[in-house]
C-alpha cells in the first residue's frame, strides 16, 4: 500500500495527542498532576495541537477536502466515519476541560475530573476506530490481523506517555513515575509490534492469481500483457512494494531507535536530576518520533493488497 505522508503524520501525531490526553486525565484523576495548574494546561494545549495537526493533515489526502464534513454521517457502517465522529466528539470534553482550567480554576474538582474522564474515553475510542479502519479490511492480509487495532492503541499510549514524562520534567513536576510507565509501555509496544511482524511474516499466502482469475483448472497462470502501458491508480495506490531487505533494516531501526533506546533513556531519566532528566526525556521523545513514523511507514509499505494478484503477484 502507498504510504501517504499525510496519513502517516495524522496517525502518529494524533495518536500521540490522544495518548497524552489519556495520561493527563489519569494523572489528574490520581492527583499526580494538579487539575488546574500550568502543566495540565500546557499538556492539554499540546495534546489538542497534536490532534488537530493530525486531523488537518488527514484531510490533505482527500480529493475534496471541502466536503470532509460529510464524513461524519455514516457511523453505522464505516469505521472511518466513526473515527471522525469520535474525534469531533472528543473535542467537546477536552475543550470544556481546558476552558474550566482557564476561567474557573477554583470550580468543584469533580467537574474537571469528569471532563478528563470523558476526554480520555473519547481519545481511546478514537484511536481504536483508527486501528479498526485498517483491521476491518479483509483485502489486505497484513491489516486484517487482530493485533492491528490494539497496537494502534498501545503505540498511542506509549508515545503520549513519553510526551507527558517530558512535559513533567520540563515543568519540574515529578516525572519519575511517568517515565517508568512510558518505558514499560514502549517495551510492551515493541513486543506487540514484534509479534505482529512475526505473524504477518508467517501467515499463509493463500490467495493466488489462479483464484483471482478462476483459471487455475487450466494450470499455472502468469501475466502476458498488462491492460495499460503506465501504472494506473490501482497500481500507484495498492501496488507499492518495499524490498524485504530494506523492510527488515527499517524494522530494526524502528525497534532500536524508536522503542528500546527511548525506554532505556526514560529509565535513566527517572534516576537523574531535573535538568539532565529533561534532556534524556527529550532525546527519548525524538527517538520515539523517528521510531513510530518508521513503524507507520512500514505498516503501509509492507501491506500487500489482494488486487496485486491481477498485476503480477503470484500469491498474497
Amino acid at each position: 500500500m502507498n504510504p501517504a505522508y499525510s496519513v502517516i503524520l495524522f496517525t502518529t501525531a494524533s495518536g500521540a495527542g490522544y495518548g497524552l490526553l489519556v495520561w493527563l486525565a489519569i494523572a489528574v484523576l490520581l492527583g499526580s498532576v494538579a487539575p488546574s495548574g500550568a502543566l495540565a494546561a500546557a499538556g492539554l494545549v499540546l495534546a489538542l495541537a497534536l490532534i488537530t495537526t493530525g486531523l488537518l493533515s488527514s484531510t490533505l489526502h482527500l480529493g475534496r477536502p471541502e466536503r470532509a464534513w460529510r464524513a461524519v454521517s455514516q457511523w453505522r457502517t464505516s469505521w472511518l466515519s466513526r473515527e471522525g465522529v469520535l474525534a469531533l466528539a472528543t473535542y467537546v470534553p477536552t475543550g470544556l476541560w481546558l476552558l474550566v482550567q482557564w476561567f474557573s480554576p477554583s470550580i468543584w474538582w469533580i467537574v474537571p475530573a469528569f471532563l478528563a474522564l470523558l476526554a480520555a474515553a473519547g481519545a481511546l475510542a478514537t484511536v481504536w476506530a483508527t486501528g479498526m479502519i485498517y483491521q476491518s479490511l479483509p483485502t489486505i492480509r497484513a491489516w486484517s490481523e487482530p493485533l492491528v487495532a490494539p497496537v494502534y492503541v498501545l503505540l498511542a499510549l506509549a508515545t503520549g506517555g513519553v510526551v507527558l514524562a517530558l512535559l513533567q520534567a520540563v515543568f519540574g513536576s515529578p516525572w519519575q513515575v511517568m517515565a517508568i510507565v512510558a518505558a514499560v509501555l514502549l517495551v510492551a509496544a515493541a513486543i506487540a509490534k514484534w509479534l505482529y511482524w512475526h505473524r504477518i511474516d508467517t501467515a499463509p499466502r493463500s490467495w493466488t492469481v489462479e483464484s483471482a482469475t478462476g483459471l487455475g483448472s487450466i494450470g499455472r497462470v502468469r501475466p502476458l500483457e498488462p491492460p495499460h502501458s503506465q501504472p494506473n491508480f490501482v497500481m500507484r495506490e495498492m501496488g507499492y512494494a518495499v524490498a524485504r531487505k530494506h523492510a527488515s533494516t527499517l524494522r530494526m531501526l524502528s525497534l532500536g531507535a524508536g522503542f528500546v533506546a527511548p525506554a532505556l533513556l526514560l529509565v535513566l531519566a527517572a534516576s537523574l536530576p531535573p535538568v539532565p532528566a529533561t534532556f534524556a526525556a527529550l532525546a527519548a521523545t525524538l527517538g520515539v518520533a523517528v521510531g513510530v513514523i518508521t513503524e507507520r511507514w512500514l505498516f503501509f509499505a509492507e501491506a500487500q493488497h489482494v488486487v496485486t494478484l491481477y498485476y503480477g503477484a503470484e500469491r498474497v
Partner: peptide, 17 residues
C-alpha cells in the same frame, strides 16, 4: 464523494479508480 479512496482499499477487484 470526498475522494478518501478507502473504497478502493476495500475492493479486492481493483474496480474503483
Amino acid at each position: 464523494c470526498i475522494g478518501c479512496k478507502l473504497c478502493s482499499w476495500a475492493c479486492p477487484y481493483g474496480a474503483r479508480e
